[in-house]
């Protein structure tokens, strides 16, 4: 499978597009179908495709960070999004919205931050499973 030149070439183009699409899904999720969960799955799917074409090592190199870091950062972001309103005297996880719109993203809020956290955890978990299973296939010493 890894020797397919066509697959290798096309994934170089498709993976960035899939990642971009996953961001798009993440950002538009509040008003249209989409959201952090699907976005995270899409991102993981894109990288899985890349891994199938280029192998686990290359996929890790493209990802740059350990999937476990994604999980940790994602959970911390979601937690932070919940703590912001606490400092303003509102209950944990109340949505706090910025006054002004950010061009290209729209209204920024702790809800979006929370969704980013979900995105990272979902992508991280899926990648962790897939990459370590694949590494096991390749009989490496240490998958992470």
């Amino acid at each position: 499978m890894r020797d397919s030149l066509i697959l290798r070439t096309t994934t170089r183009v498709i993976m960035p597009l899939l990642l971009l699409f996953s961001f798009f899904e993440l950002l538009r999720g509040h008003n249209e179908p989409g959201g952090g969960f699907v976005g995270g799955l899409l991102a993981a799917g894109g990288l899985c495709l890349y891994m199938l074409a280029h192998g686990v090592d290359d996929a890790r190199r493209v990802l740059r960070v350990d999937p476990r870091v994604l999980i940790g950062v994602g959970l911390l972001l979601a937690l932070a999004a919940g703590l912001v309103p606490v400092f303003q005297g509102a209950p944990f996880l109340t949505g706090v919205w910025a006054e002004n719109k950010v061009p290209g993203i729209g209204k920024v809020s702790t809800v979006l931050l929370f969704d980013v956290g979900v995105y990272l955890v979902v992508a991280g978990t899926t990648l962790l499973m897939v990459l370590s299973l694949a590494a096991r296939d390749e009989e490496e010493d240490d998958p992470c």
Partner: peptide, 16 residues
């Protein structure tokens, strides 16, 4: 959701 993603992350680590 916060609870669910925590479980999800833990499950991933469990698989590892």
């Amino acid at each position: 959701t916060l609870g669910e993603i925590t479980v999800l992350g833990a499950a991933g680590l469990g698989v590892l």
